[in-house]
């Protein structure tokens, strides 16, 4: 390959290694200068100007979720009717299945059959007699026994929906941890069918 004209060698050499007096590639110089100049608008926007801080970005993200939750379910209150009603809301229960796997499965196993914590699929319960008691246990926990309180970690709406999910686990009894506590009555049946269509539309939006 022919040498380009511009290659001029320095006379100095080190152990046989010589060096060219070539200029730096233009694009290299421009990109380097550009990367330095980039700092100024970045700092001005994010640290001196209106650029959102990490906290503001997070707040916006959380607010957007709260709105979504609100739009989907409204503000749910832990009462028997509401808990029973959402047991048949498939979209809500799918979300709760994920929440249960993440927060509860370490002690109660993903299918609810129990391990360190009691079996939630059978008819024997330790701290629950009525369906409403589930929400109470979720809220306050049984800290001495290893069950944490979720009051400050989940929203009230999530507590209600999670109570529905836990209650629903009884529909499919599974062998797992041996029965603990007393045999309790079946959950009450919901008085009126839930407005499932509205909810599905809300969740999808």
């Amino acid at each position: 390959m022919a040498e380009p004209e511009r290659d001029r060698l320095f006379e100095h050499e080190y152990d046989g290694i010589k060096e060219y007096d070539n200029p730096m590639p233009r694009w290299w110089v421009y990109l380097f200068a550009g990367s330095i100049l980039f700092c100024f608008p970045y700092i001005i926007y994010y640290h001196l100007g209106r650029g959102p801080s990490i906290q503001e970005t997070l707040d916006a993200e959380i607010a957007a979720y709260a709105e979504q939750l609100m739009a989907t379910y409204g503000e749910l209150k832990p009462d028997t009717a509401t808990i029973v009603q959402y047991m048949d809301n498939e979209i809500a229960m799918k979300g709760m299945e994920s929440l249960f796997k993440g927060k509860c499965a370490q002690c109660h196993v993903a299918d609810g059959s129990g391990n360190v914590g009691p079996n939630l699929t059978d008819d024997y319960w330790l701290n629950v007699e009525q369906i409403i008691d589930i929400a109470e246990v979720l809220n306050n926990g049984r800290v001495a026994k290893g069950m944490p309180a979720w009051k400050d970690k989940l929203t009230e709406t999530q507590i209600v929906l999670l109570s529905s999910y836990v209650a629903r686990l009884r529909r499919e009894p599974l062998p797992g941890k041996e029965p603990q506590g007393d045999r309790i009555q079946p959950w009450p049946q919901s008085a009126e069918p839930p407005p499932a269509d509205d909810l599905a539309a809300g969740a999808a939006s």
């Binding site: 060698l9 320095f10 152990d15 290694i17 060219y20 070539n22 730096m24």
Partner: peptide, 25 residues
Amino acid sequence: MYYFLPKAANRPVFSYKLSILHFWS
């Protein structure tokens, strides 16, 4: 690289100026 690559290739280093600037930066 600056020693063994030009030795193995038996070629001069492309740009002394670039060496200076990229070293210090």
